[in-house]
Nucleic acid binder design. Sequence first.
RNA 1: GGAGAGAUGGCAGAGUGAUCGAUUGCAGCGGUCUUGAAAACCGCCGUACUGCAAGGUACCGGGGGUUUGAAUCCCUCUCUCUCCGCCA
Length: 423
Amino acid sequence: MLTLKYITDHTEEVIARLGKKNFNGKDIIAQVLDLDAQRKSTQVKVDTASAELNNISKEVGILFKQGKTDQADQAKAKTAELKETIKNLGDQLSETENSLNNLLVQIPNLPHESVPAGKHAEDNVLEREGGEMPTLHSEAVPHWDLAKKYDLIDFELGVKISGAGFPVYKGKGARLQRALINFFLDNALAAGYLEIQPPYVVNATSGYGTGNLPDKEGQMYHCQLDDLYLIPTAEVPVTNIYRDVILNENELPIKNTAYSACFRREAGSYGKDVRGLNRLHQFDKVEIVQIQHPDKSYDTLTEMVNYVQTLIEKLELPWRILRLCGGDMSFTSALTFDFEVYSAAQERWLEVSSVSNFESFQANRLKCRFKGADKKTTLCHTLNGSAMALPRIVAALLENNQTPEGIRIPKALVPYTGFEMIK
RNA sequence: GGAGAGAUGGCAGAGUGAUCGAUUGCAGCGGUCUUGAAAACCGCCGUACUGCAAGGUACCGGGGGUUUGAAUCCCUCUCUCUCCGCCA
């Protein structure tokens, strides 16, 4: 969430920038400022009354020790009203704080100045593109047919065991998964990321920390008996490592990578979007997370985007990078680049990675700060990206590399798969 | 799952009703000394809100209660540890 200080000091600017995300912040910001003023004045009253009570209490103690019980009793009598006042003001204060917080969590992050205006995915701006568009042979088919033909992925079997969106990978299909995970992790390691194996379920506090709760509650699987949530991405547990943490400035940047299975309910999805590997309830992903000094976070974003580009290039897929417009960006992001690969048989672009700078938006909720040389604590900036999500990469690999003789594995992956062709 | 013990500052660890935001040790930071380092010595060393500042307030796992006054007493929740059971 945004910091109160920033909203207070840059009110007009905040409202204007929220407009780019198609969020009308005028009323809510006014309410926030009003509640904050209330909060402050109530706080002062509570503090003053508490100070008085503390003084009387000390006095009473001294009087008792001196044996002046009459005077002590007199002093005690004064406290009843004071306690009542403090209790009432305290209730009022927490009520105000709750309302204030409820409003703050509804305000999205401010888009970076370079974010293009727009409402929908069509308004995203092409940043750059590369790779070669494949020419498919005449009998080319979409990946779900290839998966069946070569017995790589069994969607029906997944339905039997779990339900739609839980495919079963078999044989070379399974080995391709494992190869990609290792390929992505090894590359991340070489790029200086520390490998993490996080838990796959998180508690509610962690869900709140990354902003998956309360608003996206319906998107996560919830184990009600133990009140735990299946992670929708490794971002959740990995970022929460740094919840309530004050880092030393010289520890920055923190660079973590993690492979995890990801679980998403995807309520409300339908149609061609969910065909085959395009959208699943369970999928594999390698995530990269960085925690960085505010002055350097945009350099880091560029570094991360460039890094993801190298992965796609090694996989020899046709790709493009989009700078997301205000309307298509996530609630928490300040600037996001999406990576898409072209899936030739489906003749459509598939999003395979999303790299974002959240600036201090996540860090504020997480209370992830660093202490500088001046001993001041400052909110860190957090960034993350997929590097990368497997299913759509697999879809594109299968479709684009299909030949009458079989499916060709890109050179960079062969050491990981142990085979060059799927026949 | 059963029984017991516990949760205090980065870590270790005192504190069982008031002068405790908290003794002490270690770690860290600054300094003296030294060619440099070590040792020794001196000082600093939690977070947040509020205030120009001085200061005030809150926080000793979370929540509630008793009391003029709670780290300390009571209730409750959560978590951790030990033993037993089960088990990859």
